[in-house]
Amino acid sequence: MAQWLTGEVIENFAWNSELFSLRVRVPRPFEFVAGQFVRLGLAADGERYQRAYSLVNAPDDPVLEFLINRVHDGDLSPLLHRLTTGQALQVSQPPSGFFTLNEVPAGESLWLMATGTGIGPYLSMLQTQIPFERFDRIHLVHAVRYAADLAYQKQIQAWVDAQPQQLHYQPIVSREACEGALQGRIPALITSGELEQALGDTLTTTSQVMLCGNPEMIRDAKDVLEDKGLAKNLRRKPGNVTVEHYW
């Protein structure tokens, strides 16, 4: 049964006016597997609001971190957006979810594809040794609308610099030109071959793909990957494509 811990905000970092990272200290060690999520909760105006958010931090980091986009007509995210250092919020325990690397079969390459805040679980995974020990090549693909939505750029680049032969990063920006980024949607860039060309690798049945984010992206990407012979990964029938719907 889920329990609630009272956490303390130690930082609310704004990437832009809508996208922010919330760092939270909890009163005791918090164990989770990279890729899992918890619920954050706040009370306001006599109501209690809660929503699931993936953990961005490494599993051995004592400070929990969440990448959040403010939804103006949402119940919780505007409240979280206003939190300041020292304020309290509730964090559910234990963590939940099966969007983890131990659910992904063996393969030669690992493609981590996300839209928006869906990059969160991958950031946690890449702070462990698991993907680097299991896969020869790792491709982090992050699709957003505007360049300002490309969070954690310095951290990602530091990881790429440390593992240049193994880890590759490809941003995608759909609504404006951005140096170094592809333009368009993930499914279309798979279909055209532009994504594979940019990363210098090929999506085959020796690849493992994780999809996280916009349900439309996941639906369409699954279809184009299936056309390439990459089937959905299920516990009862292992395949190549593991998915997490993010909203």
Rank of each mutant, 00 (worst) to 15 (best):
G46W: 12
W159K: 06
R48M: 04
Q50N: 14
T6A: 12
T205V: 11
V141K: 07
P94H: 01
D149Q: 12
G120A: 15
N102D: 15
I130P: 01
A2E: 15
H72N: 14
Q155V: 08
V104Y: 03
R25Y: 01
P238F: 02
G213S: 09
P59R: 00
D201F: 03
A151G: 11
R175T: 14
L140F: 12
I218L: 07
L80H: 06
L199P: 06
H245G: 00
W4K: 04
M1H: 09
S96K: 08
F32W: 12
P105M: 01
F66H: 02
P59S: 11
T115F: 05
D149Y: 10
V71W: 05
G180Q: 04
I130T: 14
E179D: 15
D149L: 10
Q3K: 10
A58E: 05
Q166N: 01
A147S: 15
T100A: 13
A188W: 03
P187A: 03
Q208R: 12
M217G: 14
P164E: 10
H139E: 15
G239W: 04
D161E: 14
A188N: 02
R175Y: 15
M125H: 00
E194G: 06
E196I: 00
W247E: 06
P95Y: 09
Y53Q: 08
K237M: 09
G193Q: 04
L126N: 09
V141L: 09
T115M: 09
N69E: 14
H245C: 04
E176N: 12
L40G: 11
W247V: 09
Q155I: 02
L67R: 01
R51A: 15
E216I: 04
L79P: 05
Q129K: 08
Q163G: 02
I186P: 02
R48L: 04
Q3N: 12
L22Y: 01
L55E: 13
V91R: 00
A44G: 04
N16T: 08
A147N: 11
P95D: 02
D227M: 09
Y152I: 10
G120W: 00
N57G: 10
H81M: 07
G116C: 12
D223T: 08
F20V: 11
R51N: 15
E47Q: 12
A188V: 08
R51H: 13
E8V: 11
L89G: 12
L22P: 00
E103H: 06
H168S: 09
L225I: 12
E196D: 15
E18A: 14
V9I: 14
Q208M: 11
I130G: 01
G7S: 07
L195Q: 02
L189W: 01
F98Y: 15
E47C: 10
S77V: 07
D45N: 14
A114L: 12
A221N: 09
P59W: 08
G97P: 00
D201P: 00
A177S: 13
E194F: 03
E216N: 08
P121V: 04
G46A: 05
I68P: 13
E11A: 15
T117P: 11
D161W: 05
Q183T: 15
A143H: 08
G193W: 04
I130V: 14
L101P: 00
M217Q: 07
K228D: 15
V91L: 03
F66Q: 02
L234C: 03
W4R: 05
L140Q: 08
V38S: 10
E18K: 07
L230C: 12
W159C: 05
G86N: 05
D220W: 02
G35N: 08
K232D: 13
P187R: 00
R23A: 05
E194T: 07
Q50W: 07
